[in-house]
Design a protein around this nucleic acid. Structure first.
Length: 267
DNA sequence: GCTGCATGATGAA
DNA sequence: TCATCCTGCAGCA
């Protein structure tokens, strides 16, 4: 479930599990043999998240390279404190210290990067709602887009860390139709969007799941909501809107499925 | 057991 | 806009 909130959560978890410890590293799949060998035996100093990207810093290796991980759509971590399951054949990387293991499979990116490459990578990202950055840059970027707000929000150069779920949910909460031109969003609406994103994603990082339902629209704490009770529109095509009862619509937008309520989010 | 889809991003055209 | 990377699992037989 790799939207930004999960990535920040992983950074925290991996820091707690392996930070300050010498790690053994290997690549069961074999596609990261050289990289793993360079890390193997070094000490994990820090793990940092920016948007959907993770950066791992190690001390004690000569190369000055950091590990860059991007989970993409398929990437998945498995974590063990004891009794680690044997890694699947597709596991790209295992980081281990004693009984503790972090296993990584299916990632879009698992590579060692030099400082210049990392800087360039990070420079491509817009402000991250989970880092309490000044969102002015994101607003300016939005105003330059010719596409709809729904498409612009998935662009990591505008805001880093949003994925398809937060995109759909935040636009519902703002009452904005995804097809409305991004450049038509005014500063007040944008500040509202940003504030909502920060609130939702902070809660997501804390709890590990995406819950957007407002207090007024639910009858029990988020932890006790079923999976299909946590969201307003995402994956609810054809079902009645929780606010007005109109059937939720879905359609392809920028190669992803978009969801919206036609009544609460007028064009 | 099989199929299709999934909370992502890139590079070629 | 499309193909590609490539894993897991829900839903169905």
């Amino acid at each position: 479930m790799p939207e930004g909130h999960s990535i920040h959560r992983y950074a925290r978890l991996h820091r707690a599990m392996l930070g300050g410890r010498a790690v053994a590293a290997w690549s069961p799949q074999g596609r990261f043999d050289a990289g793993a060998a360079a890390i193997d035996g070094t000490t994990l100093v820090d793990v940092e998240a920016q948007g959907k990207h993770l950066f791992y810093r190690f001390a004690g290796n000569a190369s000055d390279l950091n590990l860059h991980v991007h989970l993409g759509l398929f990437g998945r971590f498995r974590h063990y404190d004891t009794d680690a399951a044997p890694p699947t054949s597709g596991t790209r990387l295992v980081l281990a210290a004693g009984q503790t293991q972090v296993q990584l499979a299916g990632a879009t990116a698992c590579e060692l990067v030099d400082p210049a490459t990392e800087t360039a990578l990070r420079a491509r990202l817009g402000p991250d709602p989970l880092q309490n950055e000044d969102p002015s840059r994101a607003f300016a970027a939005l105003r330059r887009r010719t596409v709809g707000i729904g498409q612009a929000l998935l662009d990591q150069r505008v805001i880093a860390g949003i994925g398809n779920v937060y995109r759909a949910e935040v636009l519902f909460l703002a009452g904005i139709h995804p097809d409305r031109p991004a450049r038509d969003i005014d500063r007040g609406q944008f500040d509202d969007l940003w504030k909502t994103l920060r609130r939702l994603m902070t809660a997501g990082e804390r709890t590990g799941r995406i819950v957007t339902i407002a207090l007024a629209d639910r009858d029990r704490p988020p932890s006790r909501l079923r999976a299909d009770q946590r969201l307003y529109v995402y994956k609810r095509a054809g079902q009645p809107c929780r606010r007005c009862g109109t059937p939720i619509r879905s359609w392809e937008l920028a190669a992803r499925t978009m969801y919206a309520c036609p009544r609460c989010q007028p064009t």
